[in-house]
Simulated scan of single mutants.
Amino acid sequence: MPTTSPDKILITVAPTGAETTKADCPQLPTTLEELVQAAQECEAAGAAMIHVHIRDADHQPTLDQTRLHDTVQALRESTDLVVQLSTGGSVHDPLEHRLKVLDAQPDSCSLTMGTTNFGDDVFSNPWPFVCELYQLSQERQVVPEFELFDLGQVHALRRLLDTYGLPYGGSVHCDFVMGVPGGMPGTAPALVAGVAMLPPEVTSWSATGIGRSTLPVMLAALSMGGHLRVGMEDVLTLAKGVPVERNAQLVERAVRAADVARRSPMTPAEAGGLLGLGLSRSEK
């Protein structure tokens, strides 16, 4: 596996997610206007890619096609961020609706490599669905980010690449999602094990820790030359009893931590190069 740039870091922000309710967290960006504002603030703070879940008029998770298209368009018009749409939606979304996410023509999409117990729910990603979504991303020229919730999913990535070849753009970027109840723990040993198992085709990887594992995973990833995903999808407090008021706070903290490791944030253009984005937005 090629080493990542020693002096640059890709910071992805995941501002909303599908689990937290607006009633429980009023500062969560759930409207398009709030999402655009959060994206602009996070780009200014050092983020280069945004991982997007959308909500409906009642602030509930949705995969409505019109809202997906409008969101991608608004983010492209208002920021230079690499726009990555979640194909996970919520744990309740039908697989056929999740496949249609690519119709919105994002730059990138998440592609989870297997089914995971997700708290009391099940995040379903059966193998035929994974294969169909991967082939669709190749056809639509959308760069996938392979989401890895456990070591079995790292092994599944090896199987997918052997069967269907490299993704569009030729780069293979993964994100370890750690600390989910039912997935791998958010610890340094777990991250070391996961990175050691990555196929040699992997060109870059990032990590995110859920909840209390946010800081341990961040520091472990930085020490290993990885990239970071942060945001209110993954954590809602800066410290015990200190709520996150805006996603940019989490980006700013990641930038400060990266600076200690002598690494500076990538620009969106640099992130596009890392991920193998071959088409300009005007061509997509």
Rank of each mutant, 00 (worst) to 15 (best):
I11N: 02
Y168W: 10
A271Y: 00
C174P: 01
A269I: 10
C174Y: 02
V101A: 01
L32V: 02
L191M: 12
E245F: 03
P126L: 14
P61A: 04
T16E: 06
S137A: 12
P2M: 15
S137P: 02
E201A: 12
S280G: 14
P199N: 04
L136Q: 07
A156H: 10
Q40S: 12
V143M: 07
T31V: 14
L250Y: 11
I54S: 02
P29M: 13
L95M: 03
D175N: 14
A57F: 07
N125Q: 10
G225L: 04
P185N: 14
F146S: 08
P106L: 05
P26H: 10
L102Y: 02
D259S: 11
R246K: 13
P126G: 12
V251S: 02
V217Q: 04
W127P: 01
C25P: 00
P128T: 14
T163G: 00
V83R: 00
V72R: 00
G183R: 02
D93C: 05
T116W: 03
L236K: 06
L136P: 00
G272A: 15
A156R: 11
L238S: 03
F123Q: 01
T79R: 07
L95Y: 01
E19A: 13
L133T: 02
T62P: 04
A193M: 07
D162N: 15
G169A: 06
V130P: 06
P106V: 08
Q141C: 09
P15T: 08
L161E: 07
T3F: 12
S110L: 09
A48F: 08
M113L: 15
C131T: 13
S282G: 13
A39H: 03
G278D: 12
S264L: 11
T115R: 10
R159W: 11
L63N: 03
A47K: 01
L151R: 05
P94F: 05
A221N: 05
P29V: 10
P6H: 08
N247K: 08
A258H: 06
T21Q: 12
A38I: 06
S110H: 04
R55Q: 07
L151F: 12
V195N: 09
V195F: 11
T71A: 01
L238I: 09
K284M: 13
Q84V: 01
E252C: 05
R246M: 10
V13W: 00
L238G: 04
T12P: 08
A258T: 08
T267K: 11
H173W: 15
P185L: 10
L63G: 05
I210M: 14
M49H: 00
A44F: 05
E34W: 05
L32C: 04
A156W: 07
S213P: 08
A104I: 07
A269Q: 12
P128E: 14
E145I: 10
T4H: 13
T208E: 05
C174V: 11
S206H: 00
V72I: 06
K100Y: 09
V82P: 00
G152T: 06
G194S: 10
A48D: 09
L277P: 04
K8S: 00
E41D: 13
T3M: 12
L160E: 04
N247R: 03
